[in-house]
């Protein structure tokens, strides 16, 4: 098909707009990477813009030498892996029964969980609840906090509802009970769904900081994001407020960039795999209400 002149112009304009979108999205991340490798002096005088100036691994070396980074990294992996596991077990155990139209009281149970999306007790009552349960400053609190996301329950339930009933009926005839049917029939059929919801939980766990910050006092238990909050935000403010740029202040800034790189790296490596699932999830969530 021949393109008219107007269409050609449109395509060119659109191409440049898209290029701009990509640049705006990528540049902050690109800058962080090049700044972390650059000479601290060049970064602090603002001469690093498109390519690294000098090449130094000193900032990374400093970051790797900090013990608390590794502890926090380990904690994040622990919370993300076991937290997501707990998320999935609870979510599946709730979503599967709720996907059965024959279940008596299904509407009541649905209302029971939906209410929590519209109204919650708020920060202080929730915080005091953790404290009263003896969970303050424990790893268990971080695992239990946000162990179910109602939105994900609804997603999972929608997926289960789409599995044809005939599968269940034939298994019932063979004498299988509901646990067996869930494990042997529904779970294998819902692998894409399970992957999607797992990703949602995992990314959420990896990136969350707020409740970990509230619930943990012991620095050896904090996840990476809480430590990063200290390093990135607080150090950066102190750099900004420094009257004269001493050598230590300058290196602090490239250390901040190096820390960001290390913190974001796993997500960016996983990203191409994750994003497909994310998109799938949002579409299912939108179709069904």
């Amino acid at each position: 098909m021949k393109l008219t002149k107007g269409q050609k112009v449109f395509n060119v304009v659109n191409f440049f707009l898209m290029l701009a979108v990509c640049l705006i999205t990528v540049y902050p991340l690109w800058y962080t990477v090049i700044a972390s490798f650059s000479d601290p002096l060049a970064v602090s005088t603002g001469s690093v813009t498109i390519l690294p100036v000098g090449f130094e691994l000193a900032s990374f070396k400093k970051v790797f030498e900090m013990d608390n980074i590794w502890t926090a990294y380990g904690n994040t992996i622990f919370y993300s892996v076991f937290g997501t596991l707990l998320n999935m077990v609870l979510t599946i155990l709730g979503a599967y029964p709720l996907s059965k139209r024959r279940l008596k009281g299904r509407r009541v149970f649905m209302l029971f969980i939906l209410i929590t999306m519209w109204f919650n007790a708020g920060m202080m009552p929730s915080f005091l609840n953790y404290r009263d349960l003896g969970l303050y400053d424990t790893r268990a609190a971080i695992l239990l906090c946000g162990a179910i996301d109602t939105f994900n329950v609804i997603l999972m339930r929608t997926f289960f509802e789409n599995v044809p009933d005939s599968m269940e009926e034939s298994a019932k005839l063979d004498g299988a009970n509901d646990w067996r049917i869930l494990l042997n029939i529904y779970l294998p059929l819902s692998v894409p769904a399970i992957a999607t919801v797992t990703m949602y939980y995992f990314v959420g766990r990896w990136n969350s900081y707020f409740w970990s910050m509230l619930l943990l006092k012991d620095q050896s238990k904090v996840p990476l994001q809480v430590l990063l909050k200290k390093l990135i935000v607080e150090v950066s403010y102190s750099v900004n407020e420094a009257v004269d740029m001493s050598a230590t202040v300058m290196t602090e800034q490239t250390i901040v960039y190096a820390t960001i790189v290390i913190a974001v790296l796993p997500m960016l490596i996983l990203y191409p795999f994750l994003q497909k699932f994310f998109v799938k999830g949002i579409m299912v969530g939108a179709i069904k209400g």
Partner: peptide, 8 residues
């Protein structure tokens, strides 16, 4: 991509 980057 930025959807995967944390608030902090």
């Amino acid at each position: 991509m930025p959807r995967f980057i944390s608030t902090v």
